[in-house]
Amino acid sequence: MLKVLVACGCGMGSSQLLKMNCSKVLDSLGIEHEVEHTSVGEAKSMAHNYDLVIVAENFVSSFDADCGATIVGLKNIMSKKELKDKIEALGLNS
């Protein structure tokens, strides 16, 4: 099972919408998953517990390269197409 953490600046509205979109995209790709949402500040200390962390592009540099998770940055966090393309590029749907 793929453990995914999605985060936005405050961990409230945008991350909740991103969580729903992420779950829909992963379902469409047939990937068994668990998605949680939080703020970027909390996500930095939690990333090691997840396989994948999804944030807006401007937050990617906030994460340590050796945090243990793959960090994905999105230009448009509401774009299911961009999210699907980036997940497919990682080869997670194989």
Rank of each mutant, 00 (worst) to 15 (best):
K80P: 01
F63D: 07
S62H: 13
G30E: 07
V55A: 04
V35W: 10
S62L: 12
C8E: 12
L2A: 13
D27F: 01
A69R: 02
A65G: 10
H37P: 11
E57N: 14
I54Y: 01
V25P: 09
H37L: 12
G9C: 09
E82K: 02
K80I: 01
A89H: 00
E82R: 02
M46K: 15
S45N: 06
C22I: 00
L74W: 04
E42K: 14
A7D: 10
L17P: 00
K86N: 12
H48C: 09
G41I: 07
G30S: 07
L92T: 00
E32S: 14
I87H: 03
S94T: 12
V25G: 08
V53I: 12
D66R: 10
H48I: 03
T70E: 10
K24I: 02
D64M: 08
N49S: 09
F59T: 02
T38R: 11
E42L: 15
N49A: 08
V60W: 08
L18G: 02
D51P: 01
S79E: 10
A69I: 04
G30A: 07
L29W: 00
F63G: 09
S45I: 10
V40F: 04
L92P: 01
H37E: 15
A56N: 09
K19I: 05
L90P: 01
S39D: 11
K84L: 04
K75P: 01
V35I: 11
E82Y: 07
Q16T: 13
L18N: 00
I71K: 02
H37W: 12
D27P: 08
S14I: 14
Q16F: 12
N76K: 08
C22T: 15
L2S: 14
I77Y: 12
A89M: 00
N58G: 05
G41R: 07
M1W: 08
V72T: 00
C8Y: 08
K84M: 10
H48V: 04
V55M: 05
G41S: 14
L5Y: 06
L52H: 05
S15G: 10
D51T: 01
